[in-house]
Amino acid sequence: MITEIATRRLTLEDALAERETLQLQPAGTILFQEGDQPRGIYVVHSGSIDLLFQGRTRELKPARSAAVGEILGLDSVVSCRPHDYTARVVTGCRLGFIDKESFTQMLDASPDLWLTVLRLLSQDIHASYESLRHAGFVRT
């Protein structure tokens, strides 16, 4: 099972690598803002990115940092929902960008990649529930 997941993950990575446009982004760049409609997904190849929540006074509060290899914006692209956080480059980053249309075409052409996408989204949910437990139980 683990091998199967690893193989599928590589396949998705390969498929994304074929379509991505490489970008070098300096510190301070805002990749997308909370509330923006998603334009595509970003694969983090190197560097550091903060994911931030916007408070009612529009002040930005850090939620977490994105890890190398993480795909940013996947949930928003899949659901066509606005981003629910802001992504800001902390140290210079190398990113792969795949626009929404290319990503959708990729899934249409290779539907077997869907299961990998579903696994990534499921992992995000489980990580969120862990954060929720922390916020709900540790802070009270």
Partner: peptide, 12 residues
């Protein structure tokens, strides 16, 4: 799944 993720983020 995406809707669940957004909901969890809102609660966090």
């Amino acid at each position: 799944l995406s809707a669940k993720y957004h909901s969890a983020q809102r609660e966090i």
